[in-house]
């Protein structure tokens, strides 16, 4: 079935089974591979994107349900890695293997869009769905605090 999706500010026509999760449409049909497959059951967060500004798990989001909504992926967060969360991620040196980090960054940027200066408990609650096997959690917390400061300045 053919329909249109608004991805990173541009309208894309895709021809997929309507129940196909956005994750696979983004990766295989649109070619945006920054959004990762990790579990397929919304329990690891590697596929986190924004739908109308809210963090969403693309592996459980049917493509047809996203028609008319604004989809943002890691590739669309900024043109040049200049989003405060990306800057903070580089300055702190968060990623190790990096596979989960698109999802981490999308979850963190959605949190900071809602809460300018999140508490540690708010950070933990917002990020607890995002698994990282390399163990970058401490750096993630540090980078979210740094990003909050960058946004304020």
């Amino acid at each position: 079935m053919e329909f249109s999706l608004t991805i990173n500010g541009s309208v894309q026509k895709v021809d997929v089974d309507p129940e196909t999760p956005l994750l696979w449409v983004l990766r295989e049909n649109v070619g945006l591979t920054g959004t990762k497959y990790g579990c397929g059951i919304a329990r690891c967060g590697a596929c986190t994107i924004h739908v109308d500004g809210q963090a969403a798990k693309a592996c459980q989001y049917p493509a047809s349900a996203a028609v008319g909504k604004k989809i943002t992926t890691i590739e669309g967060l900024s043109k040049d890695s200049s989003h405060p969360v990306q800057v903070a991620w580089m300055e702190v040196g968060v990623p190790q293997c990096g596979y989960c980090q698109s999802g981490q960054i999308m979850a963190a940027s959605a949190l900071l869009a809602k809460r300018k200066k999140p508490t540690e408990a708010e950070i933990e609650a917002a990020m607890a769905d995002n698994l990282c096997r390399c163990g970058t959690y401490l750096k993630i917390k540090e980078a979210i605090n740094r990003a909050a400061k960058i946004e304020q300045s």
Partner: peptide, 27 residues
């Protein structure tokens, strides 16, 4: 020293085996 692979891991551009796409590829 800041690791060299970090900038490509904050914008989705780092390519993993999972991201391979070859013309005519099937899954």
């Amino acid at each position: 020293t800041m690791r060299l692979d970090i900038p490509n891991k904050v914008n989705g551009s780092a390519k993993y085996a999972m991201d391979t796409k070859v013309p005519g590829m099937v899954y």
